[in-house]
Design a protein around this nucleic acid. Structure first.
Lengths: 254, 254
DNA sequence: CGCCACATTGATTTGGGTCAAGCGACGTGG
DNA sequence: CCACGTCGCTTGACCCAAATCAATGTGGCG
């Protein structure tokens, strides 16, 4: 797993003006921005911030940051899927969150300095790296960001709590069904909710707190029963109504 | 389960001056306050806020608020233990957090208006009810509360993530051990960490994502092995070092 | 072509869920 | 004061879901 290229120089050595122009343009035309941290900013305010915010595209498997690091920045995810993993002292790992476009990664560095999780790119991801000083000065100048900030924290907590109930309670059969339902469509909400992009079996196991073998069996069973049809490898179409019956059945439906 | 007495009148009808004095005195001498939301406030600022903050003591089983309600206030827990439960559509319930003194309950109402969980008192609890308008005006006047607010949100996320790993991964034997370790001592950190106040078996089951019977068996086994000694019913002394071995063993230790 | 990572499927074992009975503590009412 | 019901805890017997171990299949890529 390769580390993300160090951006530390970005604020010390001013980027060439062509790069500044690109960043400003990229920021202005960003589809995600309204839903992300700097949504409430005006265009002029944005043009001021954009030059100090480098962006990068990273392939699957890239480690954006590891638990304990101090990246001195937050990351805004513009495209792709990133998993946050947490390790127990004995080495077992659980994926505690999947971050989708519009999410802010490493928010916790604003509070404690260090990252709580290891963030690994699942799909190819586009991220903007916003240095902490930039976040802080923007927030001082523009208090309207405060509720926006709280909104993101709230979302983190909600997501964590849902994970705890949906993906840790009941049989694996139900948990897989719930996962498929929860991953339908993207957060913009405009793609077909019945098309789901599947992570690897290993990741699915780490999300649902089970093993890759069991997950594999469940998916196979769903496919046999026609609840699930392969589009490509790793993309399936699901039968949401029948999945919902399974996901929240009062007792098992054998 | 009885509802908490409605405090809605508190801001409309000013409390009698004796009550105001009591609240001011209570707030000044509060041991918890420095660690809670209004820690950074000065004494004069505090005296201004205190009259608008009623407090109450509620017996075990009391529902402080239910998911979906709009209490228009946050609650500061000064004493006792409160469980936050979340329900699946099929009715199964999981305790997603245990709140201890110093915690702020219903923080989410500041963002979305409605409560995400059902909060039930486990021990007898003392709570202060801070109306949302009070929180908002104080935060406007005193921006130093902002980092404090973020600190609380961060803590919620950390707690949720820990729950997800410590209490949802591995065998029940390990999970019980981890719970006992995590509950050692109070957040002030000055009581003996090897003395643990146990919730009911049912609650323990809902915390660890298992059943009361299995928990009962594990506790009994720990007691047989001398890892755990009863002080009163519901209070035990544990052997932390040996528990740690069990909690984070690489593989099961039968 | 052969290697490697990933997915599938099978055989076997076991942890823990479920059902059911017994037990002690407590409060209530006769 | 004791009988009774209730409630929470414990224990046992049984069985199924899922972990584990292991072998085979499949696709992509040098």
């Amino acid at each position: 797993m390769d580390q993300i290229s160090p951006h530390a120089l970005d604020r010390l050595i001013p980027p060439p003006s062509t790069e500044v122009c690109r960043r400003v343009a990229r920021c202005r035309s960003c589809q995600i921005r309204p839903r992300a941290l700097f949504g409430p900013l005006s265009l002029p305010e944005l043009d001021e911030v954009a030059p100090q915010v480098p962006d990068s595209t990273t392939p699957p498997g890239t480690v954006l940051y590891s638990a304990g690091e101090r990246p001195e920045a937050v990351f805004i995810l513009r495209h792709g899927l990133v998993k946050l993993e947490q390790y127990l002292p004995n080495g077992t790992c659980r994926i505690v969150r999947l971050m989708r476009p519009g999410a802010v990664l490493a928010l916790e560095t604003l509070v404690s300095g260090e990252c709580d999780h290891t963030a690994v790119v699942v799909n190819r991801a586009d991220v903007c790296r916003v240095p902490l000083p930039v976040v802080r000065t923007v927030m001082d100048k523009q208090p309207s960001l405060f509720p926006e900030m709280l909104r993101h924290w709230h979302q983190l907590v909600r997501q964590a709590d849902d994970w705890l109930t949906h993906f840790s309670l009941g049989g694996v059969r139900q948990r897989v069904a719930r996962f498929l339902l929860s991953m339908g469509g993207d957060e913009i909400g405009q793609t077909d909710a019945s098309v789901v992009e599947l992570p690897s079996r290993d990741d699915l196991g780490a999300i649902l707190g089970t093993t890759k073998e069991t997950v594999s069996r469940m998916v196979a069973e769903f496919r046999r029963d026609g609840l699930l049809v392969n589009l490509d490898p790793h993309r399936v179409r699901v039968d949401r109504v029948r999945l919902e019956v399974i996901a929240y059945a009062d007792s098992e439906t054998p």
